[in-house]
Design a protein around this nucleic acid. Structure first.
Lengths: 210, 210
DNA sequence: TCGGTGATACTCGTCTGCGAATACTCGTGG
DNA sequence: CCACGAGTATTCGCAGACGAGTATCACCGA
């Protein structure tokens, strides 16, 4: 199992930021923010310098020059190496071409709604749906605004994100519907469990075996 | 901003594992695997003992007894405290009731397909769709098999996961369709960029401004 | 009874992620 | 002309994540 030398997603972002021309770290951060890349992956700017150093250590970046402008701390400008270009492409290939399960946190939550009881769960799902709806609207608006300005290719991630958010909203809505309409059996037992802490016999058995 | 004392998702799993009765760490791992919780969140078993220690440090768990069976290393049995029960509920409430953007890695990949060129991208998307389809079938089979055995509540996460995978498959399929049917303009420019590294003028301008 | 295999049960050392702090510079209004 | 806040640019400390390693037991087959 060959593991990526630099595992942090920020590394990918950095490589993409120096593809066209060498930059110093702070400038990388600037272009990445400008291009909205920070919306496409979880980026912690505190890790920037560490990650850049790691990329250099592994030969994906190289210091191109180190200028001292005025009295500032020395700024090192990094360029991408051919190994770096390689790595970038390979990384993207992996991200696009293979599915790896990365359960979203909501899924973890769902798998534990048992402890909340039905009433709280219903209230929370309502709340979540509201947030999802807002997000969808914001996203739609942004797409509308960007579509005439940018080639389609640059909008793909946003479209994907929107589609997924919509799917989640639909699913959650449907589930909520089932809960409130009483279509899900065992809600009373569930409420009793939450209030008293007693595990219904039939479920208790199930937990033993299997 | 009050941050969770123990941030690792494994912590949540551990709390849920000792809800019904005290257990020692290895046993927690056992029940969690048995209940398939490791499919609902990204769990690294190497972190188990660290996390348990942290949970104890913050008063969510307490050592109940410490038995020495035979010649084995001492096993410490931990029980959940009322603060722990609190924390568990609150955590689940947060997970269910609030949407936080956690862009999936595929999205990061999508936002960079530019570097791959259209032909590779198409091939990789095909590959991905294949994997998604497999996953969907596996998931459906599992649901079919489990539905008569478990109450609905215990299947919700699986249903959600399935729904999301289906949505992703649909979207990817549609996008692939657009790419192959030539409905997306600018594919030639894209191919040229990938082969020569030249940035088309119109795009170059766009990157400057905005 | 010997050795192999797999389950049980932990321990350790490394590396890294990242929040928070630091330090300098520039423009502006008082 | 100096105080100040907003931006620029980077460093640092250390908690904590996790892979890999360790050790014992139990069972089984040869």
């Amino acid at each position: 199992m060959k593991r990526r030398k630099v595992g942090n997603m920020l590394g990918l972002a950095v490589l993409s930021a120096v593809l066209d021309r060498p930059r110093h770290p702070y400038e990388m951060a600037a272009v990445l923010k400008e291009r909205g890349k920070d919306a496409d992956m979880p980026i912690k700017w505190g890790s920037l310098y560490t990650v850049v150093a790691n990329l250099e250590k592994h030969g994906f970046l190289e210091a191109v020059e180190s200028r001292k402008d005025g009295g500032r701390p020395e700024r090192t400008v990094y360029g991408i190496t051919s190994a770096g270009r390689e790595e970038l492409e390979d990384w993207v290939r992996e991200l696009v071409g293979t599915v790896e399960k990365e359960p979203p946190r909501f899924q973890a939550g769902l798998s534990m709604v048992g402890v909340l009881g039905p009433d709280q769960t219903i209230a929370l799902l309502r709340q979540r749906i509201e947030q999802l709806t807002e997000r969808i609207e914001a996203q739609r608006a942004m797409l509308e605004q960007l579509r005439p300005l940018l080639p389609r290719l640059f909008l793909v991630e946003v479209e994907y994100d929107l589609a997924m958010t919509e799917a989640e909203e639909r699913w959650t809505h449907a589930f909520l519907g089932e809960l409130t309409s009483g279509a899900v059996p065992g809600i009373d037992a569930w409420r009793r469990y939450h209030e008293t802490g007693e595990i219904p016999d039939d479920v208790g058995e199930l937990l033993e075996e299997e």
